[in-house]
Amino acid sequence: MSQNRRDFLKTFAAIGTTAATLTAVTPNIAKGSSRRELSIDRKGVLVDTTVCIGCGKCEWACKTAHNMEAGNFDDYSSQLTDGSQRRPSENALTVVNQIDTSIMNSDKVKLQCMHCDHPACESACIVSAITKQENGAVTWDTDKCIGCRYCMVACPFQIPAFEYQKALDPKIVKCDFCYDRTKEGKLPACVEICPVGALTYGTREELLIEAKRRISKDPDKYFDHVFGEYEVGGTSWLYLAENNLVNKVFPKLGTNTAPGVSESIQHGLFAYFVPPVALYALLGGVMWLSKNKDKNEGGH
């Protein structure tokens, strides 16, 4: 158990304070709600969708690296051309879709957590289970996660998935930017395996320069926009494509950091109800207690 009851109460108090500040309507604070300063050396991945051939090897490698049922890796590419627009799920932290299968060789887009610089999921999480790490990864602590699914609602990219099929102690799952691998100096599994190098790993700063270099070198090949540079305050994963990905793959998002957005969702949700803090308290408290009970029973 990584969090004892006292920690929980502390977190709880913190939520109270945050909520209080929020009710005082101070947009600046709401924007900068990320807990730590962003490291200038934080990593990212540049996804060049014009290079991706849709082999699906990244999906396979991701599953293998996360001890998930991966199946035969030669079967992956056919899923791409069937036209289905899959979403990352609890069984696949990343998926690759061809947006328009009627056009041969049209953009293939790999989807996974974008590792936002100011993650909405992080600020939505009431127990601080989600953390923007120094290297850019947005990770979460399964032990802290109480399964409230606020992050799912908050995420502007609909990334966190929920283990609905698990009866006992279901958790949130999403791409963790291969945090364990990168800690050891390895590349993220998907980046490592990609045969054509559609995924480039590096510091976000250097990737942005490279993305812009590619656009200026080949203005006919690329739509003049690096998706993720400014969207929701910037994301660690950046996209280059032949066409505009907005509205086709990604929703139209402002450049405001998403926490403001997610908070407004919550405000919207609870507009006609009791103050959100009270509901958080009730829901969170009940879930945390029941979770603890489960664990304890399981332990005996």
């Binding site: 290079v51 051939i53 849709g54 082999c55 590419s77 056919s78 791409l80 051309t81 041969m104 060789n105 990609c194 045969p195 054509v196 190098g197």
Partner: peptide, 19 residues
């Protein structure tokens, strides 16, 4: 690895939809 595959797939994908 990327360089090789890009050379190959640049042409091969023009007639093989699936890689």
């Amino acid at each position: 690895k990327s360089a090789y595959h890009r050379q190959c797939m640049g042409c091969h994908t023009t007639w093989e939809e699936e890689s």
